[in-house]
Amino acid sequence: MLLASIILHAVQPIRNERSTASIYHLLQGKRSAQTLQDAHMYGLTNLFGIYPKLSRDLFDKLAADLLENKIQVNKTPIPYFNGMAYQSQTDAFLYRLLLLLQMLSNQAHGEKRYIPVTDQGQVQYWVKQLYRQELTQLGNWRSSLYEELYGLLENLPEEQAGLFVDRISGYQHIGLTAAQLAVKYDLQEIDVPLYQTSTIHYFLNQVSANKALFPYLGTLIEQPKQQSNTITSTAHKTRMMLERGLTLDQIAAARGLSENTIKDHIVEMTWLEGRRLASRFIGEADAAVIMDCAEKTDTNKLKHIHAALNGKYNYFQIRMALALRNEQEVEA
């Protein structure tokens, strides 16, 4: 049993000096000076934060049973972990990958009706954005991700590779739950997340060490300043001021730019990021009217749309609606 083996492994150096609770904090990834210090002092940095969802009750019971020799466990080899380096990125990378694979697999069959494997708004937003930017490249994404993943999984034990792939949801195929994986691979259910974390740590390690070899998986790694990569930094400044609640003319005045330049920024961000900011400037109903008109008159020319709608909307609103249209197409 993996968790038991990990506890026994961690207990050795710590044993006489610290309580078993310190191991719980270590595995769970508690950001306290004490826990971090323990990790370094006892050479356990690799195990830091590898099990954020570990239940305290469960841990206490298992640790007690182990230390009082109430249960015997077969020592399981401990797979690769590097918690200190990757624990803060593990979840984001995993869910981006799972949702991206689900999207690509369904998209390959033109299937739009599927329930996303994660509810996390940020992850969904990230995948949506990628979809928008890479719309014409999705075929490449599929084949390249396939190759990159295949190569990485080949180097893992068969079982661990299977545990990872069986969890993926895609076209007409739904991934297995931890309980189901435990049955299929004859494991304890509590060990399943550990193997999955190990796999992700291994991916992160390989990908960041050989960026050139894994260009696609590399994009999934959370960049510290992800936003400024996609929008120009001057637009980024505008966004921050908008988010603080400043109005268009206030921003223009504060930055010494024209209001039109600020509007350009907003259109740019809307095009890249969708409705998030846009709702402040154009309602969905109005946007729908404009999009409809653009479609019917088969034009993107602002002047034509402006005229066709009898001047009801200004040019900025029309540009926003057209930028949003881009987002509508991927909403499903």
């Binding site: 590779a161 299977g162 895609g170 195929h173």
Partner: peptide, 16 residues
């Protein structure tokens, strides 16, 4: 039934 191993399944998922 997914008796298929992970290689085949990954290929199927990503249509390779």
């Amino acid at each position: 039934h997914d008796a298929a191993g992970w290689r085949e399944q990954l290929r199927f998922l990503l249509q390779q």
